[in-house]
């Protein structure tokens, strides 16, 4: 536990320092304002992170037995755990594709409404509805939609005379991940649409008006004017969506539980499985997975922010 106490000591000194600058508020005031947030945050967000890191170098067994195992969790993970890498691959695929679909699908929807589609005001509200639903609700509905016998997906195919394409959507490794992804995108498209819509309405009207006068087609307008002007929003949404999807758990857990043949196993479901489904009761190894994954996420975020936004930083 020495790691965490040392950390807290460091932390305490720092939060005590600001008193030197008394120009605006005394230490007491600052502490009074910040302390509640910091206490909750430190006790139940930062401390757990540290404890997880600590766990990842140990085997955490039942009845409080803690064994130091060095980096062996990590070496196993990196070199001997095929399921983990399968999960990483799936998560990466899911994240990249879902992010792109989400963001550009959302842009497309926003443009539809921005182009003064009929009932745009009402549709904006309707299209947003799935965003408000819990993953449990969305998951169950989509499991039904994908049901082989009476699900909507196959029913529509049969109705269209495309019965040959009917599938056990969640039951085959080649379709399962995409099917879950479809449900995920369905839930979140409305979110991106709203954000884009807000950004579109904030665009200076003259520019679009000028383009209209030039008899500029929608496609040209989109490519040459709208997308460049929405760059900041696009980048922002890409990052947000990316982070969210790298942590995807609920929907997959509810819809497939990681199967079939590990084809929808993501890092999050694997962490959960190793912690609570496998017969080991060991919390060390799953902690190592979580830590390694967090490092990868951080690296990704760093790279993405570097690549996408030289000018605008993550916060404001």
């Amino acid at each position: 536990m020495s790691i965490s106490t040392r950390f807290w000591g460091f932390f305490g000194r720092n939060s005590a320092k600001p008193e030197t600058d008394a120009r605006c508020a005394g230490l007491g005031i600052l502490v009074a304002f910040l302390a509640p947030a910091l206490l909750f945050y430190a006790g139940f967000a930062i401390y757990p992170v540290i404890r997880t890191i600590y766990n990842s170098f140990h085997a955490i067994k039942p009845h409080g037995v803690v064994e130091f195992v060095g980096v062996s969790n990590f070496t196993t993970l990196l070199f001997a755990d095929a399921t983990f890498w399968k999960a990483v691959g799936n998560t990466a695929l899911f994240t990249i594709v879902a992010t792109i679909l989400d963001v550009f699908g959302g842009l497309l929807l926003a443009l539809c409404l921005f182009a003064r589609a009929p009932f745009a005001g009402l549709l904006r509200v309707v299209w947003f509805t799935p965003v408000l639903m819990s993953y449990v609700v969305v998951g169950v509905i989509w499991v039904w939609i994908y049901d082989y016998d009476w699900g909507l997906a196959n029913a529509i195919l049969r109705w269209l005379g495309l019965g040959a394409f009917e599938q056990s959507w969640l039951g085959h490794p080649s379709t399962a991940l995409w099917s879950v992804l479809g449900a995920h995108v369905w839930k979140w498209l409305g979110f991106n649409m709203i954000v884009f819509l807000a950004a579109l309405y904030a665009l200076p009207g003259e520019v679009l008006g000028a383009a209209e006068l030039d008899n500029c087609g929608w496609v040209a307008k989109l490519v040459y004017i709208i997308v460049p002007m929405l760059r900041a929003t696009i980048v922002n949404l890409l990052v947000l969506s990316f982070i969210g999807k790298m942590m995807v758990f609920d929907l997959i857990w509810i819809m497939t539980g990681g199967g079939p043949l590990w084809s929808t196993e993501t890092v999050s479901t694997y962490v959960y499985k190793r912690a609570f489904e496998w017969n080991t009761f060991d919390l060390g190894y799953p902690s190592a997975i979580a830590v390694l994954w967090f490092v990868i996420i951080l690296a990704f975020i760093a790279v993405m922010t570097q690549l996408l936004r030289q000018r605008d930083k993550l916060e404001f």
């Binding site: 720092n14 939060s15 910040l34 947030a37 910091l38 945050y41 006790g43 139940f44 967000a45 930062i46 401390y47 757990p48 992170v49 540290i50 404890r51 997880t52 766990n55 955490i60 982070i243 790298m246 942590m247 758990f249 890092v267 999050s268 962490v271 959960y272 912690a275 919390l283 799953p286 902690s287 979580a290 830590v291 994954w293 967090f294 996420i297 951080l298 975020i301 916060e315």
Partner: peptide
């Protein structure tokens, strides 16, 4: 520093917290 500390929570995945939260 305070701000960085608190806002860093934006990128903390729940999976990183959950096992330790369980113990805590």
């Amino acid at each position: 520093l305070m701000r960085f500390l608190i806002l860093s929570g934006l990128v903390l995945p729940p999976q990183l917290l959950i096992l330790a939260l369980f113990q805590i």
